[in-house]
Amino acid sequence: MSIILETRDLAKSFGAVTAAANINVTIHEGEIVGVIGSNGAGKTTFINMVTGYLKPSQGSILFRGKEMVGLSPRQVTREGICRSFQVAQLFPELSVLENMLIACSMLGGNLFNPFSPLKTKANLQAAQAALDDYLIGEYAHAPVSTLPQGVRKLLDIAMAMVGRPSLLLLDEPTSGVAIEEKFGLMDTVIKAVINSGAASLFVEHDMEIVSRYATRVIAFYDGHIIADAHTTEALNHPQVREYIIGSELHREQAEGVRYAAN
């Protein structure tokens, strides 16, 4: 498999705080990579750097051999890297279908055509089909602000996938989603990703999900990568067990308590 993304000595510091350092990641075509690490370990910083939201303090990001550092998020998107967000980034006052229509028109490149309507029959059908692919077609006419988290997350990812990216970065796709819906959501997403042939990298706190969907795992701790290996190997890595999985267990217990309390 050929390499699609390669970062070299990537680092980011905010003043005296180092958010990420020595990040060397290589991703191959079609690969599905899980990213783990406690809060503040540098996972989102990594995604933000790759997608052009943050400018790295040093290092380079090569996507299909092309330097991405210095490009804006929209240019990175145009190159074929799309992302989802920890908190779904949608158009809350508009309906699900309108969200999708806008995504299709913007990523599809027919935006600067001021006189053909957005809601043509063809456009509507295409958008509805895209929603159906992610099993959220039934919500098409509901305003986004009324939807449960799980649907928002799916819409967020579905909108990113409209761009037919060759690399999809998912920032905590299951955070805020009820436990019983997490696997269903991941099934839908990963199936779509595999069908499209894109490589994917997802940040996840739930180790069960990581071990079920990822073929490889990258573990972040305190701004550094402490493990990068096949899933089982990485999850059994002693430092990973000590620093990450241990704290995730605490986190799950805490969440469990919260659920019980509710």
Partner: peptide
Amino acid sequence: HLYFRSPMGFGGEAIRENEIRVEYLGVS
């Protein structure tokens, strides 16, 4: 009227609602 119904017209509402998403849909 035509403009408001066009993708570009809706682009305005998209910006009002969430500029970050617009940026990540590849549009400035």
